[in-house]
Amino acid sequence: MSPESPTDIGDAVNSAKLSTLGMLVAGVAHEVNTPLGALASNHDVIKRAMGKLQDILADEVVDETELAEVRRIVRALDGILKVNDLAVTRVLELVGSLRSFGRLDRSETDRLDLHEGIDNALVLLRHRMERRVRIEKDYAELPPVECFPQQLNQVFMNLLLNAIQAIEGEGTITVVTAPDDRGVRIEIHDTGRGIAPELMETIFEPGFTTKGNRVGMGLGLLISRQIVDRHGGRISVRSELGRGSTFMVTLPLELPIESDAGGTPSDPAP
């Protein structure tokens, strides 16, 4: 499939967004089910333990055996309550990231702390990295950037997802941010397989993918570039085959004047 007319590109961009969304939902469902599984089981155990404690205390006299049982139950409850603290924190963090990532509660343009957007994307992608990909952050103090937050978040998600997928086995992703003479600079470096020199020209073109021929594939970098262009910024790449790639995004602090609030990548101006 090679999109040509503006309508085709619009449709393709939409299906790429849906495919990212689908991946995100599946990932978050998986991520939530682990702490939720622990919470549900622990809740059930607490109810059972409560019943046992009430039975023991219903007697006038509590003997030594019963006392030992009470101590055993209290120890067990202590352990699962600590787990519940962790599990609740994990679910809250995931849901918080998802909401903030989608910016469901904000207007379309906003001043964004870019680190928040990057960190949210990292939380949402955690299940893709498991323990095989290490994240290193080298964040500088950055002023907030006027932007379309939902769209910039999409760029971070695309670039980080590419970085994760470029790493076979174990590796490291380093995120560097710095003030720049034009505004701010974000670099995402991975120790993955790198991009062959003959492909460097085509990676920002529609249909470039290493992930097989599926609807919505091969548009991540094209969309990212469109979004960065709309923000008056630049996106570029350096790569060495077998050693890794670095994607650099520079953004001005203010949106360009011609950037209209209604312009989203899903309905490009003709």
Partner: peptide
């Protein structure tokens, strides 16, 4: 399970019940 929280939940249930 690589998640300690799942192990603790499973173990506590199995040991108590």
């Amino acid at each position: 399970d690589d998640e300690e929280m799942v192990l603790t939940a499973l173990r506590t249930f199995l040991e108590l019940e």
